[in-house]
């Protein structure tokens, strides 16, 4: 059994405890300061290394930029080509609506019908004046224009403006037609 007897006066004991406490604090403080200094040095060193590793990449980018600049006119040609093709795609080989309407009328008018005038305006109204030799042709013409099966549902409205029968037995007829195409 170990018996420890401290014979020091109480003031000295308090002083010794205070000193031991301070040494502990001092040790911890120094560790903290050293850690901070280490971290500071580490970040600064990493920054320097990073700056050095960035330099060759930057040089490479500048070189690539220069090469692209040298090929600027090729790039310009390609951009122009693509830009123009976008517009050409919208119109090339795409029939104008007026052409489509004319072709539709051409298909629907029986060959026996003599066309005096046909006009397709920008608003899409077809004005049509014709001479029809007989009532069968007239029937055919009217049924073609009004029957959805014959005109594939592409005619919205047919208005007969005038219909006369002359002494020669020919019918003179004028229409206004609105097409679904327009």
């Amino acid at each position: 059994m170990k018996i420890s007897i401290n014979l020091l006066p109480p003031e000295d004991i308090a002083l010794a405890i205070q000193r031991a406490k301070f040494y502990k604090i001092q040790l911890i403080g120094i560790i903290i300061i050293l850690t901070m200094i280490f971290l500071t040095s580490l970040t600064v060193a990493l920054r320097i290394l990073q700056g050095r590793s960035m330099a060759p990449v930057q040089t490479k980018v500048v070189a690539a930029e220069q090469r692209v600049s040298d090929l600027k006119s090729t790039q310009g040609y390609l951009m122009l080509l693509k830009d123009r093709l976008k517009v050409i795609d919208q119109y090339l080989g795409v029939s104008s609506k007026q052409s489509l309407v004319y072709q539709l009328m051409d298909k629907l008018i029986p060959p026996s019908v003599i066309i005096n005038a046909i006009s397709i305006n920008q608003a899409g109204v077809v004005t049509f004046v014709a001479i029809v030799p007989d009532s069968i042709s007239l029937d055919n013409l009217l049924s073609n224009l009004t029957d959805q099966e014959s005109n594939d549902g592409q005619i919205r409205e047919v208005s007969v403006e005038s219909l006369n029968r002359g002494r020669d037995g020919f019918y003179r007829i004028s229409f206004k037609i609105k097409s679904e195409i327009l």
Partner: peptide, 11 residues
Amino acid sequence: LIRVKSIDVSS
């Protein structure tokens, strides 16, 4: 590129 705007036919 040409677009047809209107057609007038008479005979």
